[in-house]
Design a protein around this nucleic acid. Structure first.
Lengths: 338, 338
DNA sequence: TACGGCGTTGCAAACGTTTGCGCCAGACCG
DNA sequence: CGGTCTGGCGCAAACGTTTGCAACGCCGTA
């Protein structure tokens, strides 16, 4: 079922059919012929071959989304937002996973170029990726960052306001009366973690309160890491901090367990704020106070940005931030009187 | 950078370049020329245009995966398995979401046909989809089902052995000494839920124990639904069941909360087995006994099946099952002596 | 020497769509 | 009535690859 088939049925040349079915070619074709052809095409179930169209026009109406780890539950709503947003613009979403392997990433990128995708959304950009990102840009293919930005390269992006997240956590703990703080950080190469740390520390410092630095780890976001970090923290000399800010809910879970093993109870002896507001936070004991992120909104915003870039190549739209919010549960309370 | 460019550089015709770079055309070209062309192509960074190739060959090396809800955390590992498995065969994965809207599904399918995807994997097939599935098959495009099957239509598929999951749950509760059971079911239109229910009931009946039927709901997999179902169960006349099988962990969570509100404690007064083995099951109170599924393996298996289908069109490979396993935690114990 | 066969390469026609260009007929103007 | 303009359409050349077919030169054999 091709243009030629419809053309035969309508008694016109196939180029006329092409024009009649193209909403962008305005007065090129007689309204009557247009009506006829459109009706016929619909009745015959004609569907334009996007492969051929892509070859000719150089636009495939396909956008690739590159993720680090599809298993990451935080990612799913973002992907959903992206796919939903792109679909409204008639774009399809090609999803691939790097597993944080830069060689794999390069393979995937080659594939995508050869497939002539119209644009790329990176959700897994890490600091060391800057050269890769520059390479993509040199290929002349629009690129939008989501979730994380990369220092040293100016690109359209949509990220969580992670700095605000850190601020919210600090303000909450400060308002409860805490004065000694610690962070269980994620890797500082992730802009998200870096900003969380910065927002938190800045707020704590502004209140002239005290913060114990805990080494951040490369691997993170697991109870095991949380446990290890908490034990490291409790082993330190000096006065024990009472207000803990974990960069990930799972880290917080592990930290809670480790603290309990040392005979501390939460929130009596220490308060802990997690990050991501995972769906089961209110079923754990104690229910975890956390910073929630509007994940689907983030994805949808990234899609909007991308559509803007495609509409106006060359312009770099301003980065956009979506605002996290504090969800208070039972893992935070006033510090012990001690 | 096209075939013609490489051809100019090598001093041969571009059709020769095409043949030299095609691993499938064996002795068509002089080994020396082949070496020369391959080296040159690599040096010049030539990448075959898959769009043009797709137009000519009719194969796009793209497989579409259709999901109902990308936000479903159970889906992510499956998608990962699929994408990983397909990638090894040089296939890319196009993911789209129906949001369980059949009109959306039809739109997506039209898009995919027009894009000439090589095959489709459906992970969101519901009973009422059978006509749609038949339609896809009539279009001559290979189709593989994952996670769920659809009665009345024979298709290659990879699913969880949900019946076995129900059996495992029942055996576990029976072995603890329970004699009165109830299920908090998901919608029976999903083959997965239907089979869980069947496996459970069959095992309970074989042990000559008693089962209270609780109406299943259309919406499910949320604490709210779990709470409602549990309250309905507790409001029933007659002897209260002590062994509960919920078709979803979140349903189990809600049921637990509702039971506690009625003054019952778990596992003293009742035992509950969930499904899916969600990652936070061991942090809730009490940690939830659950049926775990090998999700990534399921995805990988679906990819294997698909590759087999593409290699041998016409053959319908036998459906494959992946085996769930019981993860015992604290929400199950012996029934009260009463 | 002539001829058939074979290995290697070139030629050109596809695949289905888009689009610049030119043609034709009708309208309009002088 | 002749000329120009223009709306509508056909023609054909792309886009980059694949592939059947033909051509060419070389070798071996009769």
């Amino acid at each position: 079922m091709t243009l030629a088939d419809v053309a035969r049925a309508a008694g016109v040349h196939y180029s006329t059919v092409s024009r009649a079915l193209d909403p962008l070619s305005p007065a090129q074709v007689n309204p009557e012929t247009r009506q006829l052809v459109q009706a016929l095409a619909k009745r015959m179930g004609y569907q334009k071959d996007m492969v051929a169209s892509g070859l000719k026009r150089g636009r495939t109406h396909t956008v690739a989304v590159i993720a680090g780890d599809l298993g990451n539950p935080n990612l799913a709503p973002v992907l959903r937002g992206i796919a939903g947003g792109l679909e409204q613009a008639g774009l399809m979403t090609l999803i691939s996973e790097t597993q944080f392997d830069s060689e794999r990433l390069q393979r995937i990128l080659n594939h995508l170029m050869s497939r002539r995708v119209d644009a790329i959304i990176m959700t897994a950009a890490q600091t060391r990726d800057a050269p890769t990102l520059r390479w993509i840009r040199r290929q002349g293919i629009p690129l939008v960052l989501a979730i994380q930005t990369v220092p040293g390269i100016r690109l359209p992006a949509c990220t969580n306001d992670d700095s605000l997240g850190g601020v919210l956590a600090a303000r909450h703990l400060l308002s409860l009366g805490h004065r000694r703080f610690a962070q269980l950080r994620g890797p500082m190469e992730f802009s998200s973690c870096f900003l969380r740390a910065q927002g938190f520390s800045k707020t704590v410092a502004a209140a002239r309160a005290e913060e114990v630095v805990v080494k951040s780890t490369a691997l993170w976001g697991s109870p095991e890491v949380g446990g290890a970090l908490m034990r490291e923290l409790l082993d330190k000399k000096g006065v024990r901090p009472t207000g803990i800010f974990a960069h990930h809910d799972l880290t917080a879970f592990g930290a809670l367990t480790a603290a309990e093993e040392r005979g501390l109870t939460c929130p009596r002896d220490l308060s802990i704020v997690g990050y991501h507001n995972l769906p089961h936070n209110d079923r754990i004991a104690p229910p975890l106070t956390s910073i929630g992120q509007p994940r689907e909104e983030l994805g949808r915003t990234a899609a909007e940005i991308l559509i803007a870039v495609l509409a106006r190549p060359g312009r770099v739209p301003a980065p956009r931030l979506v605002r996290p919010s504090l969800v208070v549960r039972k893992s935070t309370g006033p510090p012990p009187k001690a």
